[in-house]
Nucleic acid binder design. Structure first.
Lengths: 200, 200, 200, 200
DNA sequence: CATGAATGAGACTTCATTCAT
DNA sequence: TATGAATGAAGTCTCATTCAT
């Protein structure tokens, strides 16, 4: 029975933190939403901070499962697209959690978990880029900046999607990958190079 | 004397909000930092919220000045690069302000100013893309998603730069534009390499 | 336990408001007097204003019970005397509350309850006077002024009694009624004296 | 010029205290109303309390002048009526001051001046009554209670008048004296006594 | 496990008063 | 005298956490 109560508290906290942010969320809101007494909360969580971190941990774990390391023997574009699709899908299934993670505020004690997670993701992306470059599939670039750019593109797009309905997850993912791979420039036709854009 | 004090309070608030976030920041911190008595704060600002919004307004105005509308008669890539360079430059000159703006939390009363600003920027970017497509310089794409992706790339990169020292603003801007234009894929033909962009 | 605490707070507030007036009274005084923590106060009352109004409501209700409409089939003087006696009695039993009500200050939000109450009492008195006049028992007069005069006489007398000890409530009431009925003038005829009223 | 400023401050304070009560009144209100700088206030008055007491003193002095001791060689009723008329007149000419004096709150430091004044008036009234009784003009009664009753009647009537317009001061005074002298009872016609009212 | 009344540190804000100009 | 920016004590209220039942 305890597990049930704990679960209801986590669900409630998810909704409340998502809607009100960490500081706007009060224990009262959470226990009201969960239909549980005040003392009961502290039976399951040591503090407001703890339940928040618990939620963060949950997302991070789920995301780690959805982001799979690229298998060099398969089509990398396909795999990247699927990774992103899975992430977008998760964000839209669990919008509250997504909103929580994509909130930021500068209390490092609170957000170090997500910060670390995003650092890891950035590192993963950077690794992939480096391999791609080494394999001659990707062009040379500043891998750190580019990795951050990709991460930012995905985060911002998801943040923006969070208020939309009826989303074709896979199309989004493809669009993102397309952008990351080809950029915006119109494909060079013959010996086309980017000087072409200089004609704008 | 009043204007001076007001300025010191704004400077102090900038530092404090940047370091502690809106909720972590206390009036005590601000007045200590400004070396001013408690009452003095309320002589210049009606509330904590007001001084915060004041700061936000400041950034938004400054950013609006640095982002110039693309002049079709000139080189657009060049202009975009310069826009981004100016934004990055501002973020690095005013790291505290940048940190404040890039913080997010879900109190809409507080952040509606930045939210609106970023929406405007996204709209500007989207407009540019559409024009580029119409002119046949940019490929067809989902302009909304792509605009958000670009915005996200810049934001995330800046956020990441905020902890770094000795940054070559212009190089960053070029790298961002390169990524946005060409993507990561290696240029189709043998000859293409990214040195080409050095010709910009 | 909650009801008990609430009661202790009300009792404490009664003492404190009575002694220091609304503005002089601080939450600290009330909770110290009640032996309760600061937060506990706000568990039971939304604000200082609320507990004050609560007290006011209490008095008004109690007074309304003690002031009975005159029954025309009985002796009106007797009934009026008893009404006044009951009011004086209440004021002396609950001197703190009486002091609170008889305080005035011009914050209408605060005192509208008593103001309204006294207006009602004045209206009741005026109605009685009018009936008395119509029945030919009372002389013609400006009923509004006279009603206010009677109200004022009772209020001022009670206010003055509040600092006295060992009071014969009924004697006070008789004296007030005597004054209101006969005035101060010596009875017209030789024989008349105030012992007559002793026959009441 | 100083005297002028001081006067403007007193006038302003009169309006403000009257409208907002002692605690509701702020120095800001007074100086705004007077069109004077903050520091200037403290050039003329040591504190908020002082200017308030100054105002109180003013009233008390004015009232003392208007209330004349009864001259036994003249018509006492006439003289009492004139006294009351003069008091009512003053209250209506200086409604703000009247409102201030008739406000009460239990801070004795603040209101001791009026309290003392009213005590004096009550004593004066009591003295008059005693003399009247000794001279055989007034009936025997509890002089203290009766004096307080009369005081209360006048105070409450004035308080009530303060919100009215176009008042016939003299009629009010006559009505009050009438009430105080004859009471409400219909004049005994023959051997009439108040048992008559028992017939109500 | 559950309850919910009680706690109290500490946040924001007000406003009478001071003082350098 | 006059000014008004600056002061800071003190007040009200909030809310995460505790604890007796």
């Amino acid at each position: 029975m305890s597990v049930q109560t704990r679960g209801r508290l986590l669900e409630a906290a998810k909704r409340v933190f998502s809607e009100k942010g960490y500081h706007g969320a009060q224990i009262s809101h959470i226990i009201d939403e969960a239909g549980v007494a005040r003392g009961t909360f502290y039976l399951h969580f040591r503090s407001k901070e703890e339940i928040f971190k618990e939620l963060l941990k949950e997302v991070v774990e789920e995301l780690k499962e959805r982001i799979r390391v690229i298998d060099p023997s398969g089509d990398p574009i396909q795999q990247i697209t699927e990774n992103i699709a899975r992430v977008v899908e998760f964000a839209l299934e669990e919008r509250e959690l997504a909103r929580i993670v994509l909130q930021r505020n500068s209390d490092p004690r609170l957000f170090s978990a997500t910060d670390r997670f995003f650092d890891e993701v950035a590192a993963m992306i950077e690794g992939s880029i480096k391999r791609g470059v080494a394999m001659g599939v990707l062009r040379e670039c500043d891998t750190e900046i580019t990795a951050r750019s990709i991460l930012g593109a995905v985060k911002e797009t998801i943040r923006w999607l969070l208020d939309k309905e009826d989303i074709d997850t896979f199309r989004i993912a493809r669009e993102l990958v397309e952008f990351g791979m080809r950029g915006l420039r119109r494909d060079a036709q013959g010996g086309g190079n980017h000087e072409g854009s200089g004609a704008l």
